[in-house]
Computed example of a mutant assay.
Amino acid sequence: MNSRSDFTEVFPEILPGIVSQNPIMIKLAGYLKKISASDGAVFLNGETGTGKELFASAIHQLSGRLGKIVCVNCGAIPESLFESLFFGHEKGSFTGADRKQHGFFYQANEGTLFLDEIAELPLMHQAKLLRVLESRKFSRIGGSEVLDFTGRIVSASHQSLEQLVEGKEFREDLWYRLNLFEVAIPSLHQRRDDIPLLARCFAMSSGRITLAPCALQLLQSSEWPGNIRQLKNTIDKLAVLADNQYVSADTIRQLAMVAEPVDCATRVAKEIIDMPITNKLKTIYDALIEQAVEISHGNKSEAARLLGVHRKVIERRMAQIHIVR
């Protein structure tokens, strides 16, 4: 497999640079394709390691914008350099400014300015960013020329900006400017069916290892708090440390590459606890009954068998939640 076309045939991309077969991801891809053509600001919210920069790049590629994408990690910007890095500066405007420097706003013109970890931006600099987004104009430090900002803003954070706004740690007016389109990036545990596909993709990209079915099963049942970044790092380390090209589950265990998988029931329980619903026990209990009845086409005995309970349990619960069959 030597060409890009061969690679994408085996690992179909739902967005440029993003491989998945998960229904949630496929639906998300359709939404991003719709909004990419607009100039509206996009906010990407997702856990660390979910690939937010990849999504920003995909949005930029789909947009057809003539400029380039400029990626900025707001958490790594020294406070004293914010204006110089974002606005640029004229030669001689301050000590050490030995030449004119174009800032991020200028570099992203007709393109996309991706502001990663936007929540890390101090309030003082949030106000300066807001002024540019409102006026679409800026000037270099030490310069009098007023320049237009024609780039599109895509921002991202693993934190809830809504909560930060409520706590007065993030400007509400800037938040409204950033989230015309708010996109939730699924964590890897929400797209667990993608783990074997991604693992094979990373292994093939390394050109050094092949993962056995048992290895893929182990990876799929393991926990990945670091999401896709952690999975990729694991495969990259396997490509270096594995003694044989064909990697089994035992090899992964021997190299201590993954923690022992959490059993299925525990994993599901954790996912339910994380769900934004009230009275989780009743909600899930009712949903199980409804799904079992639906799958069994109203056959109470079959529904009871699916759930491993007595038929009377189904009948009582059906009466309580008013399922008419």
Rank of each mutant, 00 (worst) to 15 (best):
F87A: 00
A97D: 03
R311W: 00
R177M: 07
V154H: 05
I69S: 02
N233I: 00
N109R: 12
A292F: 12
H60K: 07
S206F: 01
Q159P: 05
R152E: 12
V72P: 12
I14K: 05
I59F: 08
I118M: 13
P225W: 10
L219H: 06
V72R: 07
E47A: 08
F43P: 11
L62Q: 12
L133N: 02
P78W: 05
E110A: 14
L211H: 10
S63C: 03
S206L: 09
E302C: 04
D173E: 05
E90C: 14
L121S: 03
Q245T: 13
K280H: 04
D274L: 10
R140C: 12
V165N: 13
S144E: 10
I69C: 09
D116A: 07
T278G: 08
H89D: 02
G142Q: 01
R131I: 00
D263L: 06
L238A: 09
F181G: 07
K168M: 04
S155K: 04
R177N: 09
K168R: 14
F202A: 04
V247Y: 10
I272K: 02
E260N: 11
I14H: 13
F87V: 03
G49V: 10
L164V: 03
N45G: 12
E120I: 08
K33V: 08
R171C: 00
M318R: 15
V42A: 11
G51H: 03
N244F: 06
I35E: 06
Q220Y: 07
C74W: 04
E83L: 05
A304H: 06
T251P: 02
F7Q: 05
D6Y: 01
R325S: 03
I153Y: 01
L85I: 07
Y31M: 08
N109W: 15
P186D: 05
T266P: 08
P16Q: 11
G92L: 01
A203C: 14
C201T: 12
G67Q: 06
V293G: 00
Q245D: 14
N109C: 15
K34N: 15
N279Y: 13
V309W: 08
D39V: 06
